[in-house]
Design a protein around this nucleic acid. Structure first.
Lengths: 135, 135
DNA sequence: TTTTTTGCAAAAGGTTTGCAACACG
DNA sequence: CGTGTTGCAAACCTTTTGCAAAAAA
């Protein structure tokens, strides 16, 4: 995909088939993804170590962001539209919900009141419960 | 501490010196704590495996709750007053902030709009940035 | 005494590191 | 061609599991 090449270039990454393949996995699967998921999708011709290294560098450059899902591995998402998740404790199903002005405003107020911080870079906000099926 | 014995009894745990020691670590250190922190504090006379097992059972029973700090190990806090954290990405310093009515109201609205969930059990809300010293 | 809890050893996952070979630009 | 990237092997770190010994009620 052309966009991914631009994305890599804009972040000063060399364009490699490995990186494009990993980005495609994110494009095609609109949900939080961990290293193992990518590995299972790409299996042939890619090394797990490379996946970990790529995820780390993509996160540092801002292409990806971490998502805290309380699982044993680290999950990432494309750092596009800002949203959060509701996660089923039992079956693991995930529903997204959008970040909104009210949430932003509340968090701004929190930071204003803070003594040790004057601005924040990111935040996690994930809900955990039983979905209607599991409940 | 007497309170901890009551706490254990109320959760139907047998009262053991190991469990009391672990609870004391939480009492004396008012911050999120991981297994290794407890191990370093108690070193003699306690096994790491026991710490993991205790943390897990304390969380299940509601004595502790998990905190998502984006570190490599799992952190816990006493499940007392509901609050969240602002974490410095560089030095790791943590500032607490209280859960409030507005936040609760916003989350209720999120769940109302949800198609797959009708109520949630818990949520994470942690802010990440550089503290005034590191910034 | 009975059931739960703990310790020990070992293994299981996930992730990281060092180094040499490779490939993008 | 030179530097950034990848693969491989090995190590690392956190956490889990099985089983026998120890302790709480």
């Amino acid at each position: 995909m052309l966009n991914n090449k631009v994305l890599l270039k804009d972040s000063c990454f060399k364009i490699t088939s490995t990186r494009l393949a990993i980005l495609e996995v994110f494009n095609k699967n609109d949900k939080p993804i961990d290293a193992n998921f990518i590995y299972k999708k790409l299996k042939e011709g890619i090394n797990e170590v490379t996946i970990y290294r790529t995820l780390t560098s993509f996160e540092k450059s801002g292409i990806l962001r971490k998502v805290d899902l309380r699982k044993d591995s680290v999950y990432f998402e494309l750092n596009n539209d800002h949203h959060h998740h509701i996660v089923c404790i039992k079956c693991g199903i995930i529903e997204d919900f959008k970040e909104n002005k009210e949430i932003e405003k509340l968090l701004d107020q929190v930071v204003e009141k803070s003594t040790k911080f004057k601005n924040i870079k990111e935040h996690s906000l994930e809900l955990f419960g039983f979905c209607k099926v599991c409940n």
